[in-house]
Write a protein that binds this DNA or RNA. Structure first.
Lengths: 218, 218
DNA sequence: GCTCTATTTATGCAAGCGTATAAATACTCG
DNA sequence: CGAGTATTTATACGCTTGCATAAATAGAGC
């Protein structure tokens, strides 16, 4: 007769919120390092210092965890951009300026964020729930941008009816997205702040107003 | 003693080029329909009406097939945009106009293309070979764009030194990429041609020239 | 028409996947 | 302090995956 001594992993009970956050954070780590394919249940559990089974306790299916992680990334970027707004002064043009440069600089313009974003975007097409999550995030971002644009236009007495601001929001959103992409993918071939500067210049041209000086309408 | 009658799949020998193309096409079908995760060796083989083993005969590893497929997509989009240029007239502004609208309309601005692109982009971060392939494609596209921009500027006597055209190429590339993205992700919330028109307007503003009329510099 | 080989099929394996479920345990509440 | 429960671990099952390999065969070249 042999005496087996099995030692079971000791653990602490954490609050539901804490656990969910930890699991999401671990998921993002995995995706960032090895892509969506690297985000396996077991690897995520390992990072969160938890056994795989627990994941299912908080997320009925892996897809739900992935979806939650996606929303977390989007939310994080949104919050970071909004933070930049908070510390900006009251001039609407300065606020738009701050918003744009925040989105085109650290920590938002980061290869990890792109990896995460792209991995999720690739799923949007096949997964309706993900598609809805994405559309909400996109429209939210664009709406915030449109308000900033309208305020900036009004500040210099330029026309700011919604049929104008809508178009501008679409175009300027494209500029931000496009430059963000370029910067994430190949940040090293651009000088520091070059993309932010390029973005500001392009946006000024599109709006026909200056965002820096106290000048204004054409 | 039992007599077993096993029927083996009949097949034809195809040229190497044909087979590779077929396999790549099948891969793209899979990715388009169910994302990168749906592109399994077996599923690809099924679509190509071939058994799974054959894939390994032409592509030592699945990653190589995926990489080849990525290059094929990029190449296809590039060719389609170039085709639009060929059928444009000689006016440099018209050529830039055609290039932009081609990239912001069918068949380039298509959710399938985005799925493919995003899936691959998510891999770029982890796979250096893929990253190189991507950078080449990106720089090629931007160089072509920069030439078009320079010609358009020169046509109206605007300054077109390389330090200007480089910046413009970066910004306009961003506009195209950003709008392409928006269109692929949520094409249904935009009117027909709205994105192309928005893009043209924004680009005209950035360059300070018209791309339609025979007018010109500010 | 025979032979030879490049191409293709068929089969199998080991690893890793997501999920299910039962047993163990840390904490809560009386 | 003891019972009960929510949380966590542990284990295993059934699939799918990419890859390897042996057997078959279509078609080219003599």
């Amino acid at each position: 007769m042999t005496t087996e001594i099995v030692t079971r992993k000791s653990f602490r009970r954490e609050g539901e919120d804490k656990r969910r956050e930890d699991l999401i954070a671990a998921t993002l780590e995995c995706v960032a390092e090895r892509g969506l394919a690297g985000a396996t249940v077991r690897e995520i559990a390992l990072r969160a210092d938890v056994t795989a089974g627990l994941i299912r306790y908080y997320f009925p299916t892996k897809d739900e965890l992935i979806g939650a992680a996606y929303r977390a990334v989007m939310n994080r970027m949104t919050v970071q951009a909004s933070d930049a707004l908070k510390s900006a002064n009251d001039d609407p043009r300065a606020r738009l300026y701050a918003f744009v440069t925040a989105n085109l600089g650290q920590p938002i313009m980061d290869p990890h964020n792109l990896s995460l974003w792209a991995g999720f975007i690739a799923l949007v097409h096949a997964d309706p729930a993900m598609a809805a999550a994405h559309r909400d995030g996109y429209l939210g971002f664009r709406d915030e941008l449109e308000m900033l644009i309208r305020d900036a236009l009004l500040a210099v007495g330029a026309p700011a009816e919604s049929r104008h601001t809508r178009r501008h929001a679409i175009a300027i959103n494209a500029i931000i997205d496009g430059l963000w992409l370029e910067g994430c993918l190949a940040g090293d071939i651009f000088a520091d702040g070059e993309l932010a500067e390029t973005g500001i210049t392009a946006i000024e041209a599109v709006l026909g107003i200056s965002l820096k000086a106290e000048g204004g309408a054409p």
